[in-house]
Design a protein around this nucleic acid. Structure first.
Lengths: 111, 111
DNA sequence: TGATATGTTCTACATTCTAGAGTATGGAAT
DNA sequence: ATTCCATACTCTAGAATGTAGAACATATCA
């Protein structure tokens, strides 16, 4: 053990956090909605999936097929979950930032 | 006023924080050193300057020529400072993340 | 005056970010 | 059954950011 730490890109981090927030209900469309809300910006669905796929390839999250929406129908959902490696990356990314934020007097919390 | 918020990329954020930490002594080589320390990774000098230049073009930081090192000589330094727009971007970037981190039970502080 | 230390500039390529059109699929209406 | 519609995902492509390292510049001292 002594692998170089894996850090997350800015948007990758955002997406992982959104999945955690959504818990059992994390699928593409909902994740997009969550991210848009939090960032107060329109985010394209393509942006979401491209990131999701990339992060899954790295083993930070996993996905599986779900069902379609009961009342209205439509295509089946693809659910996502953050894996251990993903939590680790989130942690490392946060630690990296915290080290540089410590002792700084910013306008916001520098936890 | 109602400009879309400006967010920082992952490395851009790191570099801005390093400048703040270094205060009056923020110039390329030192910034590189600070970033390497904090991230526990080798970062090339090119990576630092490329980012510095891009962020300066956006108006987040400014730079000016300094003097060379007294005892040993060498080329003159180029100092950097984070401007108001940069602090704002740092703030917005942090806020965006915090909104998504709130309420989550992560292994680390979720301030 | 040239060896050496300090520091920056330039160029190039890889990865990430982001948008949007296109495709798939299940239920409802007729 | 066939068409319509809502929900959701896949694909492609281009822009922005991340990253490396060789080349260049310049001040001091032997």
């Amino acid at each position: 053990m002594k692998e170089p730490k894996e850090y997350l890109g800015h948007f990758e981090e955002i997406v992982l956090l959104a999945i955690l927030q959504l818990k059992e209900d994390a699928y593409g469309a909902k994740i997009r909605q969550k991210v848009s809300e939090a960032t107060e910006r329109d985010v394209s669905i393509g942006a979401i999936y491209a990131t999701l796929d990339r992060v899954e390839r790295k083993g930070f999250i996993s996905s599986w097929q779900g069902e379609s929406t009961p009342e209205r129908g439509g295509r089946a959902k693809r659910y996502f979950r953050v894996e251990g490696a993903g939590m680790q990356a989130l942690n490392d990314t946060n630690a990296r930032r915290n080290k540089l934020t410590a002792g700084l007097d910013l306008g916001f919390d520098a936890a």
